[in-house]
């Protein structure tokens, strides 16, 4: 038998890598279905809420300060970036339109999601990963408990339900931060600023932002729990899983954002037609 050449080896390596990728994806899907399947039951039982509330506190309440700070600075930076252009065009009082729509529909949910992936996703993966390498997940199974139901579902649910609320905080602080810089630093007039903002920003923008945040939260919860459940190799493995969980969550947020925008924009145009923002 002849030995495989470099080309064959490369193709073989690529094939094996692809197979590994499909296998991982299959495992992730099975894990996700498992975690999601328990959510209806956990939402209506006392036992489900008993597990959910501590997670909601850790994931939601404790994230509020950092999310508010992120939102405020996003709004402030947008005004700093946009002021000169809008002011020169004589449209300074319309700056709030662009800033607030950007924050409510796009930057608020995305940056809140990224912040959540870093703060909460990393912590979830580290916690579950440590439980995994110290045999605590096996201990749960050996006692007849499903670790997915016991550990992953409450964390997934907390991410899913609290992400839109956190995005709302980011939106409010973004609008507030933008107005502070607009009026306080650049001396813009508040009345026309809010008048045009009220005219242009619709519940649709706010609502679609929150829908996006809902999907981002779900993705962060599932990816972080999956990575924690499947890490190997002690402290180093847990560290790698945390990094991977953040990177994958971040990419997923961007990919989901793109596709959700396609759907949302298509839906809007079908329902209401073209919307002009400045004129």
């Amino acid at each position: 038998m002849t030995r495989p050449g470099t080309l064959e080896q490369s193709i073989g390596g690529l094939g094996s890598w692809m197979l590994g990728l499909f296998e991982q994806f299959g495992r992730f899907c099975m894990f996700s279905v498992g975690a999601i399947s328990y959510t209806p039951l956990d939402l209506v039982t006392r036992r489900g809420w008993k597990h959910l509330i501590p997670q909601a506190f850790a994931i939601g309440t404790q994230s509020v300060p950092v999310i508010m700070l992120t939102g405020a600075f996003v709004g402030m930076v947008l005004v700093v970036q946009g002021w000169a252009q809008f002011d020169n065009a004589g449209l300074a009082d319309r700056l709030g339109v662009i800033v607030n729509i950007s924050v409510a529909a796009e930057l608020g949910p995305v940056l809140a999601g990224v912040m959540l992936a870093g703060r909460v996703g990393g912590a979830l993966t580290a916690e579950l990963g440590t439980m995994n390498v110290t045999e605590q997940l096996l201990a749960l199974r050996s006692m007849g408990c499903d670790p997915i139901r016991h550990l992953a579902t409450p964390r997934f649910l907390a991410c899913l339900l609290l992400s839109p609320i956190l995005a709302l905080y980011a939106d409010l602080m973004g609008a507030f931060g933008a107005w502070i810089i607009y009026s306080g630093v650049y001396g813009g007039e508040s009345e026309p600023y809010w008048f045009y903002t009220r005219q242009a920003v619709e519940y649709w923008d706010l609502g679609t932002g929150l829908v996006k945040a809902f999907f981002f939260g779900g993705a962060i919860g599932l990816v972080s729990c999956y990575k924690g459940f499947h890490c190997k190799g002690g402290a180093e493995g847990v560290g790698q899983a945390c990094t991977q969980a953040f990177v994958i969550s971040f990419i997923l947020i961007l990919v989901l954002d793109f596709f959700l925008n396609l759907v949302i924009n298509g839906l809007y145009e079908n329902l209401y037609g073209y919307r002009g923002l400045l004129f």
Binding site: E135, A139, M143
Partner: peptide
């Protein structure tokens, strides 16, 4: 299946090498 094993696991206890106490 994992579900069918649950009653069996209630009759067998496991003391793990790393103790596996919940932190």
């Amino acid at each position: 299946s994992e579900r069918a094993l649950a009653p069996v696991r209630k009759e067998i206890s496991f003391v793990f090498q790393l103790n596996a106490l919940f932190d």
